[in-house]
Amino acid sequence: MLSDVELMLRVHEGQTDKLALLFERYNKPLFSYFYRYCGRQDVSEDLVQNVFYRILKYRKDYNGSGKFTTWMYKIAHNLAIDYYRKHGRYLYHDVDRLVDEYEDMADKALIKKEEIRLLQQALDQLKPHEREVLILSKYQELTYKEIGSILNSPEGTIKARVFRAIRSLKEIYGVLER
């Protein structure tokens, strides 16, 4: 199986059909990133499409140094920032629907419906930059070093930001819980 870098280098050389394999590998993680960021299914799907459009458009800029995912998430991060600037504020998740979907997937007796609802509301109220480091570290499972490359910050700073984001989230959650 070809690695991400090998595939992207082939796209770079003009074998643009190889982008389909990268899409199959990363469309879901990217959708997860955008959905957790903006809370809108249609917008997230469009943003994923835009990431791959930009990869194709700027394929000549890719030189194979560094991980492909770091480059891809840099593009995704820029698109998310553009989206935020354009819309001014975040669109909130349809929390009831999320909870219902989750209930369908698992044993209802085990679901703490109210906790999940509050948790999602708290995530929605988190500052954009705090929410993003949490998404990248918790849900996208990137290393702090990779997140640092995407956000142009040292690893230690990223770790500290993640911790502060967790603490802020807990505070917001506490207020909502009361």
């Binding site: 643009t16 059909d17 982008l19 389909a20 899409f23 469309n27 879901k28 959708f31 997860s32 959905y35 957790r36 299914q41 997230s44 799907e45 994923v48 499409q49 791959f52 459009y53 194709l56 999320l98 979907e101 989750y102 997937m105 703490k112 906790e115 999940i116 948790l119 999602q120 995530l123 949490l134 918790k138 849900y139």
Partner: peptide, 21 residues
């Protein structure tokens, strides 16, 4: 935070991608 689930992307996203490609 692991408890917060999200939906799957719809088929239209894949269709749009292949159309673009």
């Amino acid at each position: 935070l692991d408890d917060v689930q999200i939906p799957e992307p719809r088929d239209r996203m894949t269709e749009s991608f292949y159309k673009m490609l």
